[in-house]
Amino acid sequence: MSAQDRPVTTRAAANPRVRLLAGIAVLVLALDIVTKTVAVAQLEGREPVRILGGLIYLQLLRNPGAAFSLATGYTWVLTIVAIAVVVVIIRVARKLRSTGWAVALGLVLGGAIGNLTDRIFRAPGPLQGHVVDMVSPFAPDGRAFAVFNLADSAITCGGLLLVLLALLGREMDGSNARTKKDDTENE
């Protein structure tokens, strides 16, 4: 096949780290949609379901706020923040050369889109929708810990991985900031 016959691809799409990021984001989004759909169908109007000896309670809650039900009166602001996060991740993805960063950003992107989907399409209306939460650790009603969903878990895990990568000096381009610093000091 000659160069003229090859399909045109962008550098970002050809980048295996970008494909990894996108694959993780799509997987997180799909699992989030499925778990929320099942939760609404099975938990609506029911008392909390105790599983794992009370370690976890499954309970349907609709959260207008952020984590721990903070900022409940600012659903539209949270929607704009989620859109900004999605846009920033998509824009920086083309610079991505690190597998760790691809995994972390894929988790955050998938989770952000999952909760953003709720904010756009769920009641009470566009940009004001309540996020479906269903996992309550240790006690029902979020008495021991916040009630959350798969998207929240992905965002949290991705965020923790980003912090770890930063502490280890790992850069998005695959380089190590500590090694760069040592190299410049030795010159």
Rank of each mutant, 00 (worst) to 15 (best):
V28M: 05
V28H: 03
V28F: 12
V28I: 11
L29A: 08
L29D: 01
L29E: 03
L29T: 02
A30M: 14
A30C: 08
A30I: 15
L31P: 10
L31G: 10
L31E: 03
D32C: 04
D32Y: 07
I33N: 09
I33L: 14
I33R: 13
I33Y: 11
V34I: 11
V34Y: 13
T35F: 10
K36I: 09
K36F: 14
T37Q: 14
V38I: 15
V38R: 00
A39Q: 08
A39R: 00
A39V: 11
V40W: 09
V40F: 13
A41S: 14
Q42H: 13
Q42W: 15
Q42E: 14
L43K: 03
L43E: 05
E44I: 10
E44R: 11
E44W: 14
G45R: 03
R46M: 15
R46E: 15
R46L: 15
R46K: 15
E47W: 15
E47R: 09
E47G: 06
E47A: 14
P48Y: 07
V49W: 14
V49L: 11
V49D: 07
V49G: 07
R50I: 13
R50H: 14
R50W: 15
I51P: 15
I51Q: 06
I51G: 09
I51R: 04
L52I: 11
L52H: 08
G53E: 07
L55G: 08
I56W: 14
I56Y: 13
I56G: 05
I56H: 02
I56C: 06
Y57A: 06
Y57N: 02
Y57I: 09
Y57C: 11
L58G: 11
L58W: 13
L58N: 10
L58Q: 02
L58C: 11
Q59L: 05
Q59C: 08
L60F: 13
L60Q: 08
L60S: 08
L60E: 06
L60I: 12
L61N: 06
R62K: 11
N63Y: 09
N63D: 09
P64R: 00
P64C: 04
G65A: 04
G65R: 01
G65S: 04
G65V: 10
A66L: 13
A66H: 05
A66E: 08
A67G: 05
A67Y: 05
F68V: 04
F68C: 03
F68Y: 06
F68Q: 00
F68N: 02
S69K: 01
L70N: 00
L70F: 14
L70W: 12
L70Y: 03
A71D: 01
G73L: 03
G73F: 13
G73W: 06
T75L: 12
T75Y: 04
T75G: 13
T75I: 14
V77T: 03
L78I: 04
L78R: 00
L78H: 03
L78W: 01
L78A: 01
L78E: 02
L78P: 01
T79A: 02
T79P: 03
T79R: 02
I80H: 03
V81Q: 00
I83T: 00
I83H: 00
A84W: 12
A84H: 03
A84F: 15
A84M: 10
A84T: 06
A84P: 10
V85M: 12
V86A: 02
V86M: 07
V86T: 02
